[in-house]
Nucleic acid binder design. Structure first.
Lengths: 235, 235
DNA sequence: TTGACTATGTGTGTTCTCGCACAGACGCCC
DNA sequence: GGGCGTCTGTGCGAGAACACACATAGTCAA
């Protein structure tokens, strides 16, 4: 169970680096505050910086022409936003939006490109994270296809809570509908059900998870699968 | 328009390597025939070889506990199956099944691991392909969420045809239902519509694309988006 | 306190897909 | 050439999510 206050706010990806490597890179890492709703990249944008969230969350959205959006990846302190730079592509194909305000470490794309051409712990770590993100995207693709809005909302709230390190956070139903790729009314229905069951409480953009364990029962197994996968490569 | 016979059957990923690099790697590449339905990896399997399809197709499936399956990635001559090895993970998390029979080049996982620790054109190429596959998975996630079975079937047939290099191929409705993550009856409906419109013809597992251009009109824009993305990094 | 704005709640009818059940139809093999 | 298995066609009721249309209820600031 999470306490209602933020816990240690440090990017676990960076933290898992050997001390030497961390030291080598730290001059390149600048702390930065990310505000809710801030757009880090639009599709087609040139990526200038990559971000290692501490206690913030960056959502990667696939934008469809129909103006519907769907979250394809969630990046918290277990990851990095802007990964395509490492793969040699400076253009973002997703929209990256700050879904949870907080702090992050920032690195220039130029440095990441250098690191792509230098073998070592950091290079290897980004490789592993690439795989981890790929897993997440695949799993959520299947989840979005087969599971109900109810299940997916529960999963999504848990994932958000994990990354923010708190049981209380600001999010409107409208926002969540853009993440889950459903209508606001659909989110309302599911959220109402969860609230009736006293698993969560919400009001005007503030959500509190009341019973984490039972919420997890309501979520599909995708939650545990994704959690296991993203924890695996971190020590 | 494709002729009804196979065209040059060579993996474009490998073909795009500089001559020197290709020469260096060619001792490690063994041709192998892939039979329809052959399973290259099950989820959890240790990956022993990676595959560079020539005129074959490998589908990456996300298997849900409910026994529904969904294709999350399609690998043809523009790619490689078993990419996670390059990221340092030897265990497959998807099921990889031969969706289109044909030939491929095979390389041992051990060699790929070596290449992950050696900078150069091949390393860089796999980086790029990683990004390309990630794009494909993201795009198809959104497509599966928002677009109708009709649209998706058309898209999928086109993608298959592109990779096989022919307008005629063997596939049952049952099989396609597992790829699109819908019921067989759903595929039947959509396929029937396409057949009535004389865009395709099919009978007992043999499908022919009759009018490629008009079929493309029936498919969602995801087709062009994905095609552009996968062609981009190949020269 | 009052109005404006944002967030949430709810109803109705429609569409898409599902689940199930079964009927034809083609191909292959004994 | 008769039978069997696989592949395809179709109908019907159920349910989930859709689009649209409003109603209510907090919040903030003048």
């Amino acid at each position: 169970m999470h306490p209602n206050v933020r816990r240690s706010a440090v990017n676990r990806l960076l933290a898992s680096l050997p001390r030497e490597e961390h030291k080598r890179l730290s001059p390149e890492l600048k702390p930065i505050a990310l505000a809710f709703g801030e757009v880090l990249y639009e599709p087609g944008d040139t990526i200038k910086h990559v971000y290692f969230p501490n206690d913030s969350i960056v959502s990667l959205l696939s934008a469809m022409p129909e103006r519907s959006t769907l979250e394809v990846g969630m990046v918290g302190n277990e990851g990095m936003a802007g990964l395509s730079v490492f793969a040699g592509v400076n253009v973002s194909l997703t929209r990256a939006i700050v879904q949870g305000a907080g702090s992050a470490m920032r690195m220039t794309a130029a440095v990441v490109r250098q690191e792509a051409n230098r073998l070592g712990p950091f290079h290897q770590l980004l490789h592993r994270y690439t795989h981890s993100l790929q897993s997440q995207v695949s799993q959520s693709a299947a989840c979005n296809r087969f599971h109900s809005v109810n299940d997916r909302l529960a999963r999504w709230l848990l994932m958000t809570s994990d990354r923010l390190g708190t049981d209380e956070f600001r999010l409107t139903q409208e926002f969540m509908s853009n993440m889950l790729g459903v209508r606001r009314e659909g989110v309302n229905q599911s959220a109402g059900t969860l609230q009736s069951a006293k698993l969560i409480r919400y009001s005007r953009g503030m959500i509190t998870i009341l019973n984490r364990r039972r919420l997890q029962v309501n979520a599909c197994e995708c939650y545990s699968i994704m959690k296991a996968e993203s924890d695996q490569y971190l020590n």
